[in-house]
């Protein structure tokens, strides 16, 4: 008989403790933000998809050594260049990133000896079309320049 009432009492006590914690949390500061109206600040080291880094003139630093293309585990980087007349080095004509296959490991950025590529801070990437994720990074660089 005593056990019966004891059980009711412990049950009620558990309920009371749980409710008191919930009540306390009710007045604790809000930790969430109302995305997309508010966004949190990105960490400086956040690894987004890669982007070409411009030099002082706004041109690319890439020298077509193909180190990033070789380092990529998933083969998502395609680089094309051509040798123009009167110039010693090749110039970059296409730097395509297939973001559908990229796993954001950062091997390409580490492989680059010329600091020509870096991570972007973009994370709002959503689309229903696959083609939207084939990024032409050279074009992005030129757009940024303008």
């Amino acid at each position: 008989m005593i056990g019966y009432f004891q059980e009711i009492f412990t049950g009620l006590w558990s309920l009371f403790v749980g409710m008191s914690i919930s009540f306390k949390e009710f007045f604790s500061p809000v930790v969430t933000v109302e995305y997309p109206y508010e966004t949190v600040t990105m960490a400086p080291r956040f690894r987004g998809h890669i982007d070409l880094v411009p030099d002082e003139n706004g041109a690319t630093k890439c020298v077509l050594c193909m180190a990033c293309e070789r380092a990529c585990p998933s083969g998502c980087i395609t680089i094309e260049g051509e040798k123009k007349e009167g110039e010693k080095k090749k110039t970059l004509t296409l730097y395509q990133l297939d973001f559908t296959r990229c796993s954001l490991c950062g091997c390409c950025v580490e492989a680059c000896n010329f600091e020509a590529i870096d991570f972007s801070k973009e994370y709002n990437l959503a689309s229903t079309r696959k083609e939207d994720f084939y990024f032409d990074l050279l074009k992005r660089l030129q757009e940024k320049r303008q």
């Binding site: 960490a43 400086p44 080291r45 956040f46 690894r47 796993s103 954001l104 490991c105």
Partner: peptide, 15 residues
């Protein structure tokens, strides 16, 4: 996760 993101650059799939 915020702490690790600031160091590693990722929240779950670290490298």
């Amino acid at each position: 996760l915020d702490m690790l993101e600031a160091v590693t650059g990722a929240r779950l799939t670290y490298c």
